[in-house]
Nucleic acid binder design. Structure first.
Lengths: 187, 187
DNA sequence: CTTTCAATAGACTGATCGGTCTATTGTCAT
DNA sequence: ATGACAATAGACCGATCAGTCTATTGAAAG
C-alpha cells in the first residue's frame, strides 16, 4: 500500500470530482482514505487549501500525460474525436457521477486561492500540451494554440452539460463538429 | 423593495456564482439579502436544495430570454460571436469573480438533487432556444441543434478556463473559431 | 375592529466544519 | 539499542452548518 500522502491525494481527487471542493469534508476524506487526521498537516501544513491544490496539480499532470500519448494518433481530427469519445465513455460508464477535478478546483471560490491558482496552471498546461500534439500532427503552429484552447473549453463545458442532463449527447455533438473544424484549420 | 422571496433568489444566484452551492451558507445568504431566517422555509419548505433550485431555474429562464433577443442579429456567425464577446466583457468587468449559476448548480453534487436536475433543465432550455435562434437566422434545422449544444459547451468551458486563468483569451479564441464553424455549417 | 398570515428578529438545536493537540505505535538509520 | 520522526488513534476546540422554534410586528381582507 502507498503512504498517507498518496492516499489523501487520490481520495481528494475522487471526492472533489463528485462533490466539489467546498462540498468535500475532511472527515469524509480521512475515512474514505483510511488516514489519520494528523497526516494531513504533516504533508500539507496549510491544510485543506494546500491538500486540494496538490490533488488538483497531480490530476493536472496526469491529464497532461494522457494528452501527450495522443500524438501517436497522427491526425488532429482523430485526436480531438478521441478526446471527446474517451470522455463520453468514461462518464457513461461512471453513471455521470464524477466530473473534472480541475474544473472543480477552478470553481472552488475565494476560500481556496491556492486551489484556483493551481487549476489555472493545470488548464494552461493542458492547452499547451494539446497545442503541441496538434502541431506535431500537422496543424499550423498559429492555429494550434487557439484551437487547443477551444477543445479544452468544449471538453469542460460538455462535461458540465452531460453531467447535468445525464446524457452523452454533448460529447457526440462536439466530436463531429470539432473534427470538421480541425480539418478546416488544416486547409 | 421587492419581497423576501425575490431577494433570496437574487442573492442566491450571486453567491453560488462566486462560491458554488456547497460553499454558500444560509447565514451569509440571509445577511446579504437582509431577510429573516424563517422566510426561507415559508417559500422553500424543503430548505436549501429547494431555494437554490429555484434560483437556478430563474437564472435559466433569464438566460434563455437573453438568448432569444439575439434573433435580431440575423446571422448565426454574428450570434455566436456576440455570445462569446458578451461573456468575455461581463467577466472582465467583473474581475473574474462570478461564473455561471447553472454550471454551479450542475456541479452541486448528490446533496442537492433538485439543484442538479434544475440545472440540467436550464441547460437543455438554452440549447433549445439557441437552436431556434440559429435556425431562424439561416442555419439548417438538422445542424442547428448539435451546433447549439456545442456553443453552450464552449460557453461553459471557456468560463471555467477564463476564471481559473483570469484571462479573457478563451473567449476570444472561441469566438473566431465558432464563427468559422457557423459559416461552414451554412455551406 | 378583528382575523389572518406573511415577515421579522433572534434564540436554539444537533451535527459538522477545519484545525490543534496528546499519546502511542511503527519504522527506519545510525 | 537508541534516537528521530512518520503514522496512527482519537479527544478536543471554537466556529459554522442547515433547520426548528417562539414571539412580535405589519399589513391586508373580512
Amino acid at each position: 500500500m502507498t503512504g498517507p500522502r498518496e492516499r489523501l491525494l487520490a481520495t481528494a481527487v475522487t471526492l472533489i470530482r463528485e462533490r466539489g471542493v467546498a462540498g468535500t469534508g475532511l472527515a469524509e476524506l480521512l475515512k474514505e482514505s483510511g488516514t489519520a487526521r494528523g497526516s494531513i498537516y504533516q504533508h500539507f501544513p496549510r491544510g485543506k487549501d494546500d491538500l486540494v491544490a496538490a490533488a488538483v496539480a497531480e490530476a493536472g499532470t496526469d491529464g497532461r500525460a494522457t494528452l501527450a500519448t495522443l500524438r501517436a494518433l497522427g491526425d488532429p481530427a482523430v485526436v480531438v474525436t478521441a478526446i471527446m469519445h474517451a470522455a463520453r465513455d468514461t462518464l457513461d460508464a461512471d453513471g455521470y457521477v464524477h466530473g473534472c477535478p480541475i474544473a472543480a478546483g477552478a470553481l472552488a471560490g475565494p476560500d481556496y486561492p491556492a486551489v484556483v491558482g493551481t487549476a489555472g496552471d493545470a488548464l494552461a498546461g493542458w492547452v499547451e500540451e494539446l497545442a503541441g500534439v496538434l502541431a506535431a500532427t500537422g496543424m499550423a503552429a498559429e492555429a494550434a494554440s487557439p484551437f487547443a484552447s477551444l477543445v479544452i473549453s468544449v471538453f469542460e463545458g460538455a462535461l458540465v452539460q452531460a453531467r447535468a442532463s445525464r446524457s452523452p449527447a454533448p460529447f457526440d455533438a462536439a466530436a463531429d463538429q470539432l473534427a470538421l473544424l480541425a480539418r478546416a484549420q488544416l486547409a
